[in-house]
């Protein structure tokens, strides 16, 4: 391999790491919901894509600069998150994890179909910000839209971490995820925390959906299944319940994805990511940052 190939490889890995911010945000969402409810919300990535679509719909109605699309996606994500809780979790007994698993799968299909139905299955263009900006760094070029997506992802993560570790709401959320009964005895309303977690992760998901749209340049309902799988993989590799783990795993998975795509082609790319996950499950089942055992 000569030098030019190496530069190309590094370039594509760097692009992947920047895009990995989306995976990181989705991984955080899965981790937070699982932490609080001990339930898997499989409709999460579909809801995120749905929020991005909703933001396009709102923007088509009113005149606003393109940056508003992200704000709208966040708002729509929050609303959809609340609805997901109401439809797929509220009325199903907590002791039955299979039922909520199935109801979120139903919701995933429903959201996908609503998107297909309302857009006639045609992928929509998504406004990319700073797509004409290219920052040269020596032999490498960093794409402006990817940098923006990455920066937005980082801001989101910082805000989320501050929210979780510096506010009362965050304290309550962490309390419920560690000991639901004890926190209820301390006067924390579990339903309240659950709803708020769903809205919060919905907002994060909406931004992640908008970031995916901006980075790829278009939106399609076909994105929701791959994003679900990638988000889950990131959650497990990072360590269930660990937010820093999800961030690192998201960036690593994004980078490795492009690495394998560069060397082995697009059709084998995901195969190696799955193998990586299996390696983690066998040698380090707790992920990068395993949660400390013995809480129950």
């Amino acid at each position: 391999m000569d030098l030019l190939d190496l530069i190309d490889a590094v370039q594509s890995v760097a692009d992947g790491v920047l895009f990995g911010a989306t995976y990181a945000l989705l991984g955080i969402g899965f981790t937070l919901i699982f932490g609080v409810m001990h339930k898997l919300n499989l409709s999460y990535a579909a809801a995120s894509i749905g929020a991005a679509y909703a933001s396009l719909l709102i923007l088509a109605g009113i005149e606003a600069p393109a940056i508003f699309v992200f704000l709208m996606a966040a708002v729509a994500g929050g609303v959809i998150g609340g609805l997901v809780y109401l439809i797929a979790f509220k009325f199903i007994p907590l002791a039955n994890p299979l039922a909520t698993l199935m109801s979120t799968v139903g919701l995933l299909l429903l959201i996908d179909e609503i998107i297909v139905h309302s857009t006639a299955g045609v992928p929509l263009n998504y406004p990319a910000l700073f797509s004409d900006v290219i920052i040269p760094m020596g032999p490498f070029n960093l794409r402006g839209d990817l940098i923006f997506v990455f920066a937005l992802g980082c801001v989101c993560m910082v805000v989320l971490l501050l929210l979780l570790y510096r506010t009362k709401l965050g304290l309550a959320t962490r309390a419920v995820s560690q000991q639901p009964i004890a926190s209820e005895l301390c006067g924390i309303s579990i339903t309240h925390v659950n709803v708020l977690t769903f809205v919060l992760t919905g907002v994060v998901g909406g931004i992640a959906g908008a970031m995916t749209g901006a980075a790829i340049g278009m939106l399609s309902p076909l994105l929701s299944l791959p994003l679900t799988v990638k988000g889950l993989i990131v959650t497990v590799i990072g360590g269930l319940g660990s937010i820093p783990g999800a961030i690192i795993a998201g960036l690593v998975v994004g980078g490795l994805e492009n690495f394998f795509q560069f060397f082995r082609g697009v059709s084998e790319r995901d195969l190696y990511i799955m193998l990586l996950l299996f390696a983690f499950l066998i040698f380090r089942p707790g992920g990068i940052f395993p949660t400390t055992a013995g809480r129950d």
Binding site: L40, V229, L232, V236, L271, L275, F278, L281, P285
Partner: peptide, 28 residues
Amino acid sequence: FPALRVKGLMLVVATVAFGEAVRLFFFN
């Protein structure tokens, strides 16, 4: 053997990954 060492969400993800790996194997 490796998959059932984990449970709950981890098992779901592990088995999804296995299913996808099989699919991608036949893709290639």
